[in-house]
Write a protein that binds this DNA or RNA. Structure first.
Lengths: 209, 209
DNA sequence: TATCTAATGTTGTCGCTGTCTACATGGTAG
DNA sequence: CTACCATGTAGACAGCGACAACATTAGATA
């Protein structure tokens, strides 16, 4: 048929796209550089011209994952409801992404990244946290939530949603439906932040903040 | 020196022990059956007599991890404080285990398990959730926590602590200290469960439960 | 006690992998 | 036009997991 030109032209994009597909179908350990090259009709050495090694390719996949996830979350944060509704929407968006791309999420949060791309990865990865932080601070100023360190509270929310996302993605919710758990989680978090923590329960140092 | 006897005697235990060490030092992908055999002074084919597969070995490691984690958690649940103190203790125990054995925790919750060992693994893995469920039900009966489905609430707590554990283990708390996050998480969860969720915020179906 | 069998360990082989090297091709800047 | 350099090819290498054939030995059975 149409014999391939010597140069592929968009090899890097093709490899990245196919890598994401493979990871979503078979997980990271189902990803092979040589098989990937075969899939794109290219010799086994070609990928090395675009990704120093396998980990570099995986890092690029993780970065792409964060970028598309951030788009979803940003969109959910702008749905025109009240503060609490937006908070719940963001949580649902995060968990939905996890359920639809479980293997990708695992790659995104697996901790071995090359120092090079690490900075970009890290910055892209924490955008969701900063978004939560802004929403919480806004709700506190509006008097909807009790006082408290927005940075820490944002991390609490992120951490909880992250756990929900990972376990939902892994089908490890022990019989509970994803919908129930995400609803109960956002409800409980919001109620806890609205009520605040009685001073008597806090260790002394925290009161000094 | 003392030449090895033809039969090792306790090869299965030795392999398992060394596998845990290797995983904690280098992660799962740093684990090689052949290197493992070398470490224990045994031929490269020997491990196959005790573990059908590499995955079977990993499953056994995961199971051992759950067992030792459950011991820690059970102990923390029996510290003689009030209900809230025991709740916090369990959370701290879970996160402490995660921080001390990050790679092991990853293996424990990675979802590809052989159907054979899957049942035992699953049962051992959910013991922590059942413990949380019992504590919450007890606190509800004592009137310390508001009413609500203990099963769902236990999952909310587990999910949140799990997220804290994973991100703390991965050093991904974005500048927050592990201590701060785990304290804030248990505080917020407890406050949320104590306050309960106003009926107006619940979707209609939930009120029918 | 003698024997037989199954469990355990060894050795060799297979195809696959990631990485490295040397070489081929061709787009593009001077 | 030419020279350069990014891109792609081809071959080699060691390490891997899995499998099969064979060796050794412990323990049950007679």
């Amino acid at each position: 048929m149409t014999d391939q030109p010597y140069h592929h032209g968009k090899l890097r994009e093709a490899l990245l796209e196919r890598a994401v597909e493979t990871i979503e179908e078979a997980g990271v350990e189902g990803l092979s550089l040589r098989q990937l090259a075969r899939d794109v009709n290219v010799s086994h050495g070609a990928p090395a011209k675009h990704f120093r090694d396998k980990q570099a390719l995986i890092d690029a996949v993780a970065l792409a994952g964060f970028e598309s996830m951030n788009r979803l979350i940003q969109g959910a944060a702008q749905s025109g409801e009240d503060l609490r509704g937006r908070f719940v929407s963001v949580g649902k968006a995060y968990v939905d992404f996890a359920v639809e791309h479980p293997a990708l999420l695992t790659v995104m949060y697996s901790t071995k990244h090359h120092p090079d791309s690490s900075d970009e990865l890290r910055n892209t990865g924490v955008q969701g946290i900063h978004l939560a932080q802004a929403m919480i601070a806004e709700a506190q100023e509006a008097g909807v939530l009790a006082a408290g360190n927005p940075e820490t509270l944002a991390m609490v929310c992120f951490v909880s949603l992250h756990g929900t996302a990972l376990l939902a993605a892994g089908g490890q919710l022990d019989g509970n439906s994803v919908e129930d758990v995400i609803t109960a989680t956002t409800d409980t978090l919001w109620a806890g932040m609205a009520a605040g923590v009685p001073a008597a329960q806090l260790p002394p140092t925290v009161q000094l903040h």
